[in-house]
Write a protein that binds this DNA or RNA. Structure first.
Lengths: 146, 146
DNA sequence: TTGTGTGCAAAATCTTTGCACTTCG
DNA sequence: CGAAGTGCAAAGATTTTGCACACAA
């Protein structure tokens, strides 16, 4: 799990400055349970640091994305969200109902990729696996609702 | 593999009209080797039917997407492309260099999903797997180039 | 003939850029 | 102090909407 401290150090080490705005945005991302659009980040960051601008949300998300701290989440409908990447994790599990995002590890796709490589001749470079479902909380709400 | 005929029948059966514009757009999608943005579809469709408008490209892609004929392809950078869905296929393999898209079947993720379900409590509803790599043609170009 | 579908232009969104001012280091 | 970073406003893209006309059925 990333902490604010770790991320700040990572930015600092790479020569980037630690500003109010960046701190606020990092805190927002760390405390988010779901994935956030630049506009979401903007809105929430203002609560922590009132004159953060939308443009800074864009710029900081891009920076954090380049640094590998955050990554874009692609749902079929909404493909403009970002979420923090946990250590070594790469895949997201999104709740269809409430939008909550969890991560999971170990996607064990190597066999599949080997097959794909043999069949297609492609050299596999990267992959993205996004899973959607209904989270436990929403499942119980559903049962209550009938 | 979908054919123009099959798609036309599918639309027709669902009560949609078969217009010049729709035919042109379907042909464009069928003949595309890579995934296309609405703007791409617009440009190419005009070659077949000169007064197709951009708006129609948007509207037709949405329609075809609802009908399950086409689906959005999500690359990390570009998430606005669409490609035809082959029968029963659901996953795409994109070449990083030339953008060519192929499909593959049988993603054999059921074991993984079972594990994710047990660990997270989520009821898995859907998933999206996008793989990127270098296609055979681009691999040989690379070798030639040094 | 009829109303779905179209193209155009305009509006609404979303994202990027330019620039003077702030602020971290 | 100096340059990276910021916020604002404006420009650029992208996507959606309104409306009169066209054309499948």
């Amino acid at each position: 799990m990333h902490s604010e401290q770790e991320i700040v150090q990572q930015l600092s080490a790479a020569g980037f400055r630690i500003t109010q705005a960046r701190r606020a945005i990092i805190q927002v991302l760390l405390s988010a349970q779901d994935c956030l659009t630049p506009a979401d980040v903007y809105e929430r960051a203002r609560l922590l640091s009132p004159n953060v601008g939308l443009v800074t949300a864009y710029r900081t998300l891009e920076l954090l994305s380049d640094m590998g701290v955050v990554r874009k989440i692609h749902g079929d409908a909404d493909c403009h969200g970002y979420a923090i990447i946990g250590h070594g994790h790469r895949h997201h599990l999104t709740c269809r109902r409430c939008g909550r995002v969890e991560e999971f590890e170990g996607c064990s796709l190597s066999e599949l990729f080997e097959r794909v490589r043999l069949e297609s001749g492609f050299a596999i470079v990267d992959h993205m696996l996004e899973v959607t479902g209904i989270c436990p909380d929403c499942q119980s709400l559903e049962h209550q609702a009938g």
